[in-house]
Write a protein that binds this DNA or RNA. Structure first.
Lengths: 114, 114
DNA sequence: CAAATATATATCGGCCATCTATATATGTCA
DNA sequence: TGACATATATAGATGGCCGATATATATTTG
């Protein structure tokens, strides 16, 4: 098996897709949710997130829709498309292989977190 | 805890230091050993490795010495310095935190490979 | 013996992901 | 009403990694 060489630096995309698996979310919410779930280890920057969202939407991996509430500021929600779900599964497999390989190189012990 | 933002893309340094933990090695050997230990998932490129080795040596994390055999091609072996060992430990902790956080974001389950 | 291939190290230019900085606009709270 | 949080957006800078290339020697193969 060959790992996509951009996996490591491209893990942000994996995380974004992972967030959308459970619920539709808007950008700002993703930043907060990611911090929360990772216990402040990931502090995704807006300047990183939004360009990725636009790219993923262009690629058909996610779809957006606006909320039409009268009170709050309009938010742009994103949801996974069928293709996006497939991409997420692929990237999850890559991540498992990658993290497992790192652990093997470092200490011999294998990844067992699933 | 704050993760070095270059961790992900900087995992190559972690892997190199990890290789040197068990034995002194020369560059070309690291490329082979890394492929072997990771079951061909990591194919470290010479153009990536050697500049990193030079940088690490400049920073005092590793030291080099040449072999003076008459038969074989001279090899430049590297060993971890005290500081290098410390750096490795730090980076290993960061890696655990990072991979654990990814797993938490993705599925909830935690890293348990150690 | 000569050619091809594997071993071994080295550097440069460029790509691409991410961050910083900045801009814009609205809702809420003191 | 001024400050701050919410919310999205983009341009420019930075930095790690790779592809290409160069050099030199040992080994294997025809």
């Amino acid at each position: 098996m060959k790992i996509d060489k951009s996996l490591v630096s491209g893990s942000t995309t994996l995380l974004i897709l992972g967030l959308l698996k459970s619920n539709d979310m808007y950008g700002y919410q993703m930043i907060e949710e990611l911090e929360k779930r990772s216990q402040n280890i990931f502090t995704l920057k807006a300047g990183t997130l939004y360009p990725i969202l636009h790219t993923l939407e262009q690629q058909g991996m996610i779809e957006s829709y606006d909320t039409e509430t009268e009170s709050a500021r309009p938010r742009k929600y994103y949801r996974l498309t069928k293709e996006g779900k497939k991409l997420l599964e692929e990237k999850q497999i890559e991540w498992k292989a990658y993290s497992s390989a790192v652990n093997q190189v470092l200490g011999g012990l294998n990844y067992a977190g699933y």
